[in-house]
């Protein structure tokens, strides 16, 4: 079974040279630590920055320079700053190549829910609805099952939706899956030591298993 870091590490393998990438809060943020060497990637932070650098050295924090998670960060050579409307303009116009975000639930038709649990938790959608509605390439980093062992990969989402028919790839602690255009979670890889049977049990939506399913590799 994969840790959060390993999920991030596996997702990082999907990033290609020359990509502009938007990373959501949580596991997606960790992906920045695993971008393969020799690959040039520009990270977009939707509060208005292209070219997000690492955290500042102690004592060099700048209150005016934060990422979308409100963390202090740095710029890099080639960075640029812009306002929030332009930031979502470039997202809507599909200038950003890849979006990686977290989810509470994903359905077998590619719907995603990640912003609200009615009566319990209301944090808001932030930029997630804009991102999922416009991005051409979205990878979801999420837990396959919740603490009670219940599947979060469902036939239909039970929570209020963030976007409809927009998710194509999911990486969880158990597996890498694609969402098929006709619906269904197609199993591509399984985490080391995890059986197809366990993934089947842990997936409430329709799971499609065809041929050999290799173990995920991180190198």
């Amino acid at each position: 079974m994969f840790s959060k870091e390993e999920i991030a590490q596996r997702i990082a393998k999907e990033i290609k040279d020359g990509y502009y990438v938007n990373l959501g809060i949580g596991i997606p943020t960790l992906v920045a630590n695993y971008i393969p060497k020799g690959i040039n990637v520009v990270l977009q932070s939707e509060n208005g920055l292209l070219g997000m650098g690492p955290f500042p050295f102690e004592g060099e924090e700048d209150a005016d320079l934060i990422n979308a998670g409100k963390q202090t960060i740095t710029t890099l050579p080639g960075s640029s700053i812009f306002d929030s409307a332009m930031s979502f303009g470039m997202i809507r116009a599909q200038k950003v190549d890849l979006t990686i975000l977290g989810a509470m639930e994903v359905s077998e038709t590619g719907d995603i829910a990640n912003w609200k649990i009615p009566g319990k938790m209301v944090k808001g959608m932030g930029g997630a609805m804009d991102l999922v509605a416009s991005a051409k390439n979205i990878i979801v980093a999420m837990q396959h099952i919740n603490k009670a062992g219940e599947s979060k990969l469902l036939p239909k989402c039970t929570l209020p939706l963030t976007g409809v028919k927009c998710i194509k790839k999911i990486v969880t602690e158990l597996a890498v899956l694609d969402i098929l255009p006709e619906g269904g979670f197609k199993l591509l890889e399984r985490a080391p030591g995890v059986s197809i049977e366990f993934i089947q049990q842990s997936t409430a939506g329709r799971l499609v298993v065809e041929g050999e399913i290799p173990e995920m590799r991180l190198d």
Binding site: E46, D83, S84, A85, S87, F88, G89, I91, R92, W115, K116, V122, G124, M125, G126, G127, A128, M129, D130, A133
Partner: peptide, 10 residues
């Protein structure tokens, strides 16, 4: 009224 961030900006 919670609205998407890009919608808010635009």
């Amino acid at each position: 009224d919670l609205i998407p961030q890009g919608t808010l900006a635009t």
